[in-house]
C-alpha cells in the first residue's frame, strides 16, 4: 500500500503492508524511534503522537488510514538544542525515571493542554458547562491514558502544571 504522510512537517512516502500500524511506520520505516512501543494495545500511551493536532495511540491505527494526515511526534516538538516548553519542564521537574514513557507523556500532555484550552471538560470537572481549571486532579484524570511504570507521576504533574500556568 502506498501512503503519503506529513511527518513533523515533512512529506514522507510509505510503501508498506496494510497491517503496518502508524507506530510501526514511524519507528521501522521512517526510523523515528522517539515514539515507543509499550503494550501495542492502546493501554499504556507510550506510542502517543498527534495526528492533525490531536493525541492518539499510534499503535491502534493503521498507517494506510492516514493518507494526507499531519503527524507530530516527539522529534517534531523540539530538539535537544531547542526544547519545547513541555520537554523543558519535564527535564527541570525530573518527570521521568527510565524515560521509556516520556515521549508519549510529553506528546499527550502537549495536546491535552490544547484540549483544556478549548474548554473540554473531563469526568472530574464539577460543572460541565464552565471552563475547567487545570487542578492536579484534572491533570491526573486527563493524563490517565499514559502509564509510567517508574511512577514519576508527581513530577510529571508538576511539569504539566507549570506549562499550563
Amino acid at each position: 500500500m502506498k501512503t503519503t504522510l506529513k511527518v513533523n512537517g515533512e512529506e514522507r512516502e510509505l510503501e508498506a503492508d496494510s497491517r503496518v500500524s502508524l507506530l510501526d511506520a514511524l519507528r521501522n520505516h521512517f526510523r523515528l524511534t522517539g515514539s515507543k512501543k509499550g503494550c501495542d494495545h492502546g493501554q499504556c500511551g507510550a506510542c502517543t503522537v498527534m495526528v492533525n493536532g490531536r493525541r492518539i495511540n499510534s499503535c491502534l491505527t493503521l498507517a494506510c488510514m492516514h493518507d494526507g494526515d499531519e503527524i507530530t511526534t516527539i522529534e517534531g516538538l523540539g530538539t535537544p538544542g531547542s526544547l519545547s516548553p513541555m520537554q523543558d519542564a519535564f527535564v527541570r521537574h525530573d518527570g521521568y525515571q527510565c524515560g521509556y514513557c516520556t515521549p508519549g507523556q510529553i506528546c499527550s500532555a502537549t495536546a491535552m493542554l490544547e484540549e483544556a484550552k478549548a474548554g473540554w471538560p473531563s469526568v472530574v470537572t464539577e460543572d460541565l458547562e464552565s471552563r475547567p481549571d487545570l487542578t492536579d486532579e484534572e491533570i491526573s484524570e486527563r493524563m490517565s491514558g499514559n502509564l509510567c511504570r517508574c511512577a514519576a507521576y508527581p513530577n510529571i504533574v508538576d511539569a504539566i502544571r507549570e506549562v499550563a500556568e
Binding site: G42, N57, S122, V123
Partner: peptide
C-alpha cells in the same frame, strides 16, 4: 451522555 463518554477510556482513545 457527556459524563458517560468522559468516564470511558482515555483522552487518546476518545479522540479516535
Amino acid at each position: 451522555l457527556s459524563r458517560a463518554l468522559l468516564a470511558g477510556a482515555s483522552g487518546q482513545l476518545r479522540n479516535k
